[in-house]
Structure formats: structure tokens, C-alpha cells
Design a protein around this nucleic acid. Structure first.
Length: 502
RNA sequence: GGGCCGCUAGCUCAAUUGGCAGAGCUGAGGACUUUUAAUCCUUAGGUUCGGGGUUCGAGUCCCCGGCGGCCCA
């Protein structure tokens, strides 16, 4: 509404012709005492119900059944004494309405031709018939405007520009079936994740979005302010530290599906607000989490596509069924380099490999971070089908338990699919003393590089000191899961992505 | 943050070397009782993203800014 004309000005002056015409039709209705936005319409059946009930009706048949239907006019074909319109329901079902002179009379037929435009919502009451061409139709005895549209629809047969689709998603949803389908797919995936977790006795909780301290991930936060407390607050970058408090409190299987906020770049796979599933399970480890994650994704694929084979927007099909490939970080990196690399390979050697592959090296990186960067550069682009990448350097995994038998490594995996990171999981670090030492080191690093030095979350450490049982934890990006299942960009999987002001 | 590409009618897009800003759909007027993106006749519709510059002349070339997309960091 920001662009609308102030009430004082005469809005008709500036408007394009098509909008003036539609407003004048609304005015004409009001002048005739007809409400262009009535309270309701006595609908007796949805378009889908009519289609289902009369699926087998033969060509050029009259049923004698009278129904009342509603829908948005998406195509219109008027002639002198017989008019056709295609109506569409919210679920995308289409049905034809027919209006004939002998059935509704000259006056109402003329009203239809004068007042109804593409995009209007109408209600039609009449007999269910099939036309001579076999099209299932409602032959009107009466009709009403149920909501007059004041703006023209875009051309229905050419794609909207990508920017228009994102900025005016409501228009995208009206004209593009794939847009409506994506909304349904997303709802189905989220529902499937919840069902899968509930059936495994996980409890869903909601933890703070507004936090005094941000933690649980390395990312720049959004900052806001509480007037009541007179203190700055952070929008959460992860729910991790609160979910762990839940496990300390005895909620042994806990999850949350909610939004995280990161004040970072926006591109085809990153959004400043994104939906995330996090799961924690006591007496589990990163192996338990791998099985759970695979089952969650496979059940989501089956719930939404009826199969483990998913079809991407480009038509390619991928089978997500069965066991998934599992590699180690250093093993796959060694293979890509053609030389043995381990967690004890020294910095100088790693820098040589980086130079050989034109990878710029930041002076802030340690050997663990550099190995990860090399991995992302050389291995990740080739990971198409879901692949677990296991055993990351301890250096970059401050909340992860040390590997049970390989020094210098941590029990962490990342799940990659279609070139992006889909999920990550740890055998959680639960020793409060070691946890404190690692967080202090992180805080010192943050303080060096950043004026917003991270403070220690003392309450989190206090909770850990009460004793957290051995646990596995996992986080999965919901938007990215949708991307992996559908092949769409992140701005298509998010209904209303952030855009710059017009 | 850097590079490249784009922004023209309500929508999707054209416009040759710098030389009258166009098409389809949509809209308006008319014809049509079986259409399916109906068809036929007539017709309207523009601050070419904004600002500045070069030029006899700029949608087109140059500079600054805005928005979007892609690639890179």
C-alpha cells in the first residue's frame, strides 16, 4: 500500500486506462445498488467436486442438477448470445461457465459482458451440463460478482519475469501452477518431518528467537533493542544452545523447526532468514543421527512424491532411496588431490595445494580450516547424490566431541547433496570443562577479528555443569531440503523472500 | 566488495551505424448461441528506471545513481 495515492487526490487521473475501466465498473455496480464485494456466495460445490462427480458425463448432456460454484475468471469468450468463461478455484481446478441469452435473459447477459473482466471472482448458479464440444460446464441461471479485481492479470501464457514473481508472489500464485505446487510441496515436506519425528517420540519445542547472546553457530547476527530491558537483543542464529538445555533438563528427544536469522549475503542458496530443523537425542551419536537424517529425507520424498525418486524442475530424476554414500573429509580430499592428506598434514603443504588449485588463503585460517576450504573447492561440486562427509578437524568444530579413536578429528558429519550442504550432525561435546575452554578460545578469536566480541554464554555452561547425557545432534536446512527435492532456487522455495524496497 | 548482463505500453518482448518507439496478449468500440490462449473488423495505450553529459539529433554513446540477475571474493 506504500505506493497508493493519497485519498485527497483524484486517483482516476494518474491510473492506466485498464485500471480506470475496472474502477468505473465497480462504480457502476455501486450506482446500480449491486455490491461488488458481497459478504459471500451460497456455494454448493467446489469446482473439484463437480469435476469428480461428473467425470464420466458424455458430450452434449444436460443433467438437470442445479449447483452453485465460485471461482476466478481466467479466460473469457463472449459472443452475441452465448458467453463462455473458465473459472479457477484456489486449488487450481478449472471449470467452464456458460451464460446464454435464453437462460438468463438479455439484461443479465449484457451485465456480464459489461462488468466482468479477467481476474474477477464470480459465483454462478445453474445446471451441470457438457457442451457440444464435451466440456463440463455450469449453464447459468444466475450469476454474481463476488469480488471485482481492479488490476489486470499478467498475460497468462507467458512467464512472469523472475523479479515480478518474487515481488508479487500473490500474482505468481494466481497465474503459475508450479508456484502453487511448490507451496504444497513445502507444506508436505514440513509435515512429513514433524510426523516422522513424532512417530519416533521426539518432542517439538519452541526456543527464543530474541536472545541476549547469540551462539550455536558462527555467523553475524541481526541486532535489535528491547525498550523494556533497555538492552540490545540478537535474533537467533541457531537454537542449538537452548535445545541442549532441554536435553540437560531431561527432554531426551527434542526438536525444533523454526527460523534462523543471519546477517550475511543473499544469493541463490542463502537467505537472511531461513527455516531450520534441529534435533537432539540423548544416548545417541553422529551415527544415530546419520540414520535418522536419511530416514527423514527419504520419508519426506515418499510423502510428497510417492517415491524415493525425485524429479527436479529441469526434468532430471534422482533416486534418494537405499543407503547413501559415506566418505571421510580427509579421504575424499586426498583422492581429489592425488596425495595423502591427514589432519596432521602441516600448513606449508596445504598452502602448496591451495596455490596449485588457485585457492586464495586467508591468514586467519589454520590447517583444519584450510583443509575444509580445499574440500569445498575440489570435492563438493561433485557431490550430487546425498553423501555423508565424516570426521572434521577438531579445530573448526568447537561444540563437537573429539573422535573416539582418531586424535585431532571430531565426530561431525556434513550431508551434501546437489552441490550444497543439506545437514550437519555431531556427537555432542558434553564435558562442561572442555566446553568452557573451547568457547573461551572462540571468543578470543572473535574478539580479535571483530568489534562485536562474542561473550561467553555462562548460563549455557552452567546448564552443562548440571550434566548433559551423551547425545547426538543434527541440523538441517528446510529451504535447502526443498531445493534438493525439487531442484528449485531458494527464492522459489521461500514464499516471500526478502527483496530490496521498490 | 569486484566483474558482466539487463531495466522500453497493464504483461512478455522488438527497435539495423546514433535518424519518425513497434509487435503479441491485455484494454476500448462493433459482429457472432458451442467457445477452449475463441474468431473477425476498428482502435487506444509510452517520463524508454532516475539524473547529468556528448551530438543537428540519444532507447541506442559517456558519467553518476537505483533495482534485478549471473559469476567471483
Amino acid at each position: 500500500m506504500t505506493e497508493s495515492t493519497p485519498a485527497a487526490a483524484d486517483p482516476a487521473e494518474d491510473l492506466p486506462e485498464q485500471m480506470r475501466v475496472r474502477r468505473s465498473k465497480r462504480d457502476r455496480m455501486l450506482a446500480d445498488g449491486v455490491e461488488p464485494y458481497p459478504l459471500s456466495y451460497p456455494r454448493t460445490a467446489t469446482l473439484a467436486e463437480i469435476r469428480e462427480r461428473y467425470a464420466e458425463l458424455a458430450t452434449d448432456t444436460a443433467t438437470g442438477d442445479i449447483v452453485s460454484v465460485t471461482g476466478r475468471v481466467i479466460f473469457i469468450r463472449n459472443s452475441g448470445k452465448l458467453c463462455f468463461a473458465t473459472l479457477r478455484d484456489g486449488d487450481g481446478t478449472e471449470l467452464q461457465a456458460m451464460l446464454s441469452l435464453d437462460r438468463i435473459g438479455a439484461e443479465r447477459l449484457e451485465d456480464w459482458k459489461r462488468l466482468v473482466d479477467l481476474g474477477d471472482h464470480v459465483g454462478v448458479t445453474g445446471e451441470v451440463i457438457t457442451s457440444r464440444r464435451g466440456e463440463l460446464s455450469v449453464l447459468a441461471d444466475s450469476w454474481s460478482m463476488t469480488a471485482k479485481a481492479l488490476r489486470p492479470l499478467p498475460v497468462a501464457h507467458r512467464p512472469l519475469s523472475e523479479e515480478a514473481r518474487v515481488r508479487q508472489r500473490y500474482v505468481d500464485l494466481i497465474v503459475r501452477p508450479q508456484a502453487r505446487e511448490t507451496v504444497r510441496t513445502r507444506a508436505g515436506v514440513v509435515r512429513s518431518l514433524r510426523d516422522s519425528l513424532h512417530s519416533r517420540d521426539f518432542l517439538e519445542v519452541e526456543t527464543p528467537m530474541l536472545q541476549l547472546l547469540h551462539g550455536g553457530a558462527a555467523a553475524r547476527p541481526f541486532v535489535t533493542h528491547s525498550n523494556a530491558l533497555d538492552t540490545d537483543l540478537y535474533l537467533r542464529i541457531a537454537p542449538e544452545l537452548f535445545l541442549k538445555r532441554c536435553v540437560v533438563g531431561g527432554i531426551e528427544r527434542v526438536f525444533e523447526i523454526n527460523r534462523n536469522f543471519r546477517n550475511e549475503g543473499v544469493d541463490s542458496s542463502h537467505s537472511p532468514e531461513f527455516a531450520m530443523l534441529e534435533v537432539y537425542q540423548a544416548y545417541a551419536d553422529y551415527n544415530t543421527m546419520a540414520t535418522l537424517t536419511r530416514e527423514l529425507v527419504q520419508e519426506a520424498a515418499r510423502a510428497t512424491f510417492g517415491s524415493h525418486v525425485v524429479r527436479h524442475a529441469d526434468g532430471e530424476e534422482y533416486d534418494l532411496g537405499g543407503q547413501w554414500r559415506s566418505v571421510t573429509l580427509y579421504g575424499s580430499l586426498s583422492e581429489a588431490l592425488g596425495e595423502e592428506v591427514t589432519v596432521s598434514t602441516d600448513m606449508a603443504r596445504l598452502v602448496q595445494y591451495a596455490e596449485k588449485h588457485n585457492l586464495p588463503v586467508s591468514p586467519k585460517w589454520g590447517p583444519g580450516k584450510l583443509a575444509e576450504e580445499l574440500f569445498e573447492e575440489l570435492v563438493v561440486p561433485n557431490l550430487v547424490l546425498p553423501t555423508f562427509v565424516r570426521d572434521y578437524p577438531e579445530e573448526t568444530s568447537p561444540l563437537t566431541r573429539a573422535h573416539r579413536d582418531q586424535p585431532g578429528l571430531a565426530e561431525k558429519w556434513d550431508l551434501y547433496a546437489f552441490g550444497v550442504e543439506l545437514a550437519t550432525a555431531y556427537s555432542e561435546l558434553v564435558d562442561p570443562v572442555e566446553q568452557r575452554e573451547r568457547l573461551i578460545r572462540q571468543a578470543q578469536l572473535a574478539a580479535k577479528g571483530d568489534d562485536e566480541a562474542m561473550r561467553l554464554d555462562e548460563d549455557f555452561l552452567r546448564a552443562m555443569e548440571y550434566g548433559m547425557p551423551p547425545s547426538g545432534g543434527m541440523g538441517m536446512g528446510i529451504d535447502r531440503l526443498l531445493m534438493a527435492l525439487t531442484g528449485l532456487g531458494i527464492r522459489e522455495t521461500i514464499l516471500y523472500p526478502l527483496v530490496r524496497p521498490e
